Amino acid sequence: SPEEIKAKALDLLNKKLHRANKFGQDQADIDSLQRQINRVEKFGVDLNSKLAEELGLV
């Protein structure tokens, strides 16, 4: 269901964000992850996106 997909995506992105902060990645990478999280919260996951591929939806 779209809600489950959204939850999985947010979980994955939050893990990536945590790792980025923990290991001191570029601020641009961290900002990009934050924008992705905001986009998923607002609009859900686009099944044509790279994120959908990472989640194994495509």
Rank of each mutant, 00 (worst) to 15 (best):
R35I: 08
D26F: 07
S32N: 13
V40K: 00
K15A: 13
L51P: 01
N38M: 12
L33D: 01
K8W: 10
S1E: 07
E54T: 06
V40H: 01
Q34R: 14
K15N: 08
V58P: 07
A52W: 10
E3S: 09
V40S: 01
D31E: 13
A7E: 08
I37Y: 04
P2C: 15
Q34D: 02
N38T: 13
E4F: 11
N38L: 13
A52Q: 02
A20L: 11
A28W: 09
Q36P: 00
L33A: 01
A52G: 04
E3W: 11
E53Q: 13
K22S: 09
A20K: 03
I5D: 04
L33W: 03
D29P: 03
Q27R: 10
L10E: 01
Q27N: 07
Q34H: 11
D31P: 03
R35C: 12
G44R: 00
L47I: 10
R19T: 08
S49Y: 03
I30A: 04
L12A: 05
N38A: 15
S49A: 03
L55Y: 02
V58L: 11
L17G: 00
Q27H: 07
A20M: 13
F43M: 07
K16F: 05
F23P: 04
L55T: 02
V45D: 01
H18M: 15
Q36Y: 07
N38E: 15
N21T: 15
A9L: 06
N48W: 11
R39M: 15
P2V: 10
V40G: 00
L12I: 12
L13I: 02
N38G: 07
I37P: 00
D29V: 15
G56M: 07
E54G: 03
E4S: 11
D26G: 11
Q27T: 07
K22G: 05
A28G: 10
K22L: 14
D31A: 11
E3C: 10
S49E: 04
I37V: 04
I37F: 03
R39K: 11
K16M: 14
L10A: 01
E4A: 12
F43W: 12
F23Y: 13
L17H: 01
V58A: 11
L17K: 03
A9H: 02
K50R: 08
A52I: 05
E54Q: 07
L10C: 02
V45C: 03
A52Y: 08
G24Y: 05
P2K: 11
Q27P: 11
N38W: 13
K22M: 14
Q34P: 01
N48E: 08
L17A: 01
S1I: 07
N21M: 15
S49W: 05
P2Y: 14
E3I: 07
A20T: 03
Q36T: 08
K50A: 13
D26M: 08
A7I: 11
S1R: 09
E54V: 07
L12C: 08
R39C: 15
Q25A: 15
E41V: 11
L13R: 00
N21V: 15
K42I: 10
Q25R: 14
Q25D: 08
K15R: 14
L47P: 13
S1F: 09
A7D: 05
E41N: 10
E53F: 14
K16I: 06
V45T: 02
R19C: 14
H18Q: 14
K6A: 04
L55K: 00
Q27C: 07
F43C: 12
I37D: 00
H18I: 14
H18P: 00
L10I: 08
A28Y: 10
D31V: 09
L55H: 01
L57D: 03
E54P: 01
I5S: 05
Q34L: 15
K42D: 04
E54H: 05
G24A: 09
A7M: 12
L55A: 02
L33C: 02
A9C: 05
H18D: 13
H18Y: 14
E53S: 09
K8L: 13
G44Q: 01
D11T: 07
N14Q: 13
R35K: 10
L51I: 06
S49L: 02
A52S: 04
H18W: 13
H18V: 13
K8F: 07
R35S: 09
I30K: 05
R19F: 14
L51N: 02
S49D: 05
D26L: 09
L47M: 13
N14G: 06
N14R: 15
Q27Y: 07
D29G: 08
D29L: 15
D31T: 09
E41R: 15
I5Y: 12
S32E: 15
L10H: 01
P2R: 11
L33V: 05
D11L: 12
L55P: 01
K22Y: 09
K8T: 05
A7C: 10
N21F: 14
G44I: 01
N38P: 00
K6D: 02
L51S: 01
A7K: 14
L33T: 02
D11G: 05
L12P: 01
G24W: 05
Q36W: 11
D11Q: 13
E53N: 07
N38S: 13
K22T: 12
L17I: 05
N38D: 14
A20R: 02
L57M: 07
K6Q: 05
P2H: 12
E4N: 09
G24V: 05
D26N: 14
V58K: 12
S49Q: 03
R19Q: 12
Q36C: 14
Q36A: 10
K22I: 12
L47G: 05
L57C: 05
N21D: 04
V58G: 09
G56C: 06
S1K: 08
L57P: 02
E41Q: 13
L47Q: 06
G56E: 05
G44S: 02
L17D: 00
I5H: 07
I5E: 03
L12F: 13
K22D: 05
V45A: 02
V45H: 01
G24K: 08
A7F: 09
R19I: 11
N48F: 11
S1N: 11
L13D: 00
G56N: 06
L13H: 00
Q25I: 12
E4M: 10
K22N: 07
R19A: 12
A28D: 11
V45W: 02
A52D: 02
A9V: 08
V40R: 00
K42N: 08
N21E: 11
A28T: 10
L12N: 03
K50L: 10
E53K: 13
K15Q: 13
F43Q: 05
F23C: 12
K42R: 13
K42P: 01
I37R: 03
L47A: 07
L51K: 01
K8H: 06
K22H: 10
I5N: 07
A28H: 10
Q27S: 08
A20C: 06
Q36H: 06
L10V: 03
I5A: 06
A28P: 04
L17C: 02
I30M: 05
Q25P: 05
L33H: 01
R19Y: 15
V45S: 01
R39D: 15
K22C: 13
K6I: 08
L12Y: 15
S1W: 10
K42C: 10
N21I: 15
G44C: 02
A20P: 02
E53H: 12
E4P: 04
R19G: 04
S1A: 08
Q34M: 15
K16L: 14
N48D: 09
Q36S: 06
G24L: 05
A9F: 05
S1V: 07
G44A: 02
E54K: 04
K50P: 14
F23I: 10
K22P: 03
D11V: 10
F23T: 11
P2D: 12
L12E: 04
V40Y: 01
E54L: 10
L17F: 04
Q34N: 08
F23D: 11
A7Y: 10
H18E: 14
G44H: 01
K16A: 09
V45P: 02
Q36E: 12
E4H: 09
R39Q: 14
N21Y: 15
L10T: 01
V58E: 07
E4V: 10
E41M: 13
L47C: 07
Q25V: 13
K15E: 10
A9K: 00
S49P: 02
A52P: 02
R35L: 12
N21A: 12
K8D: 03
R35P: 00
K42A: 10
K42S: 07
H18N: 12
V45Q: 01
I30P: 01
L33I: 14
H18R: 14
N14C: 15
V45L: 12
K16C: 12
K6H: 03
